[in-house]
């Protein structure tokens, strides 16, 4: 019981000069239990706001967000969030960061240690348990953030451009690992991205959003392509070369472009620079 339902969700932000800005306009969307849904769209289409509302970090002006049948009233450990900026606590080690949620919950120490060790191993972080985040590369930091999300055994995983701050090579490695992890540990996932490739490769369904106001343009099921093409067995670069994949990519790009006359459709899928901290 962890499907995520957006029911007529509208979000307006008040403007400083009075009036308000319609960020999201009456969105209805259901993400089934253990389904991996990617949301793509240009900046300002409200995709991050949508995720924040599922996380309980923001609330709709109208409509409801339900997770597992219950209306979202605030953040909770059953809905883990992975942020683009990693959001690791700089003063805690890798081990302490991964174990933070368990500590907050009061999990017994031995049990927590075992769970941490499992995800340290799974995410390839062995040997870095006692490092501080700043001692790790961006890719490693995001592995910690993903381990931190998975260790809570959340019903739902909410990822806000988790690979947006990584370089291209690291990004591909992480995408493959996420697929591996998601297969081993299926969860209900909302994955926000503006990289169309990433969305098609990772998701069961891709939701294409437009802006002014933020709304859903189309929802596309990728599963038939994946199953027919045997994507699971292929390395990522081969998947991205298949005709099915490239057709799908241009189809989504056209959708995005058609709604976006005044500006180039989508930023090229280049990673944003990591803010040095």
């Amino acid at each position: 019981m962890s499907e995520i339902v957006f029911e007529g969700v509208t979000r307006r932000f008040p403007l400083p000069k009075g009036g308000d800005f319609l960020a999201i306009d009456r969105i209805d969307l259901t993400i089934e239990e253990k389904e991996f849904v990617a949301i793509v769209g240009p900046s300002g289409c409200g995709k991050t706001t949508l995720m924040r509302m599922a996380a309980g970090l923001d609330f709709p002006t109208d409509g409801r967000v339900l997770v597992g049948g219950k209306e979202v009233k605030g953040p909770g450990p059953e809905r883990a969030v992975v942020f683009q900026q990693f959001a690791l606590l700089p003063w805690k080690t890798v081990r302490e960061n991964i174990g933070f949620g368990l500590m907050c919950k009061g999990t017994p120490k031995a049990e927590a240690e075992a769970a941490i060790a499992r995800y340290v191993d799974l995410m390839g972080l062995t040997g870095h348990e006692d490092s501080f985040p700043h001692q790790l590369s961006g890719g490693m930091q995001q592995r910690v953030a993903i381990a931190r999300a998975y260790v809570m055994q959340p019903a739902a995983l909410l990822m806000d451009e988790p690979f947006g701050a990584l370089d291209a090579q690291t990004r591909i490695v992480m995408q493959e690992e996420l697929v591996r992890l998601a297969r081993r540990n299926p969860r209900t996932v909302i994955f926000i991205t503006h990289a169309v490739d990433e969305a098609i490769y990772l998701a069961d369904r891709v939701v294409v959003m437009g802006r002014k106001p933020g709304r859903i343009i189309e929802t596309i099921d990728i599963r038939p392509l994946r199953e027919d093409g045997g994507w699971e067995a292929l390395p990522i670069e081969e998947v991205m070369d298949t005709p099915d994949f490239t057709h799908m990519r241009s189809r989504i790009w056209k959708l995005l472009k058609a709604r976006e006359q005044e500006r180039p459709a989508v930023p090229a899928p280049t990673p944003a620079p990591v803010p040095a901290k």
Binding site: A55, G56, L57, G74, P75, G76, P77, R79, A80, V81, F83, Q85, A87, L89, W91, K92, F100, G101, C104, K105, R148, M152
Partner: peptide, 29 residues
């Protein structure tokens, strides 16, 4: 203190006291 850190701690189930102790005070240090 970076608001994302506070948001991240809350999504991990941290109470207000835990947020202050583990996020706000070390962040302000």
């Amino acid at each position: 203190v970076d608001p994302v850190l506070i948001a991240a701690a809350r999504t991990q189930g941290a109470s207000t006291a835990q947020v202050i102790r583990h996020v706000v005070i070390p962040g302000a240090m």
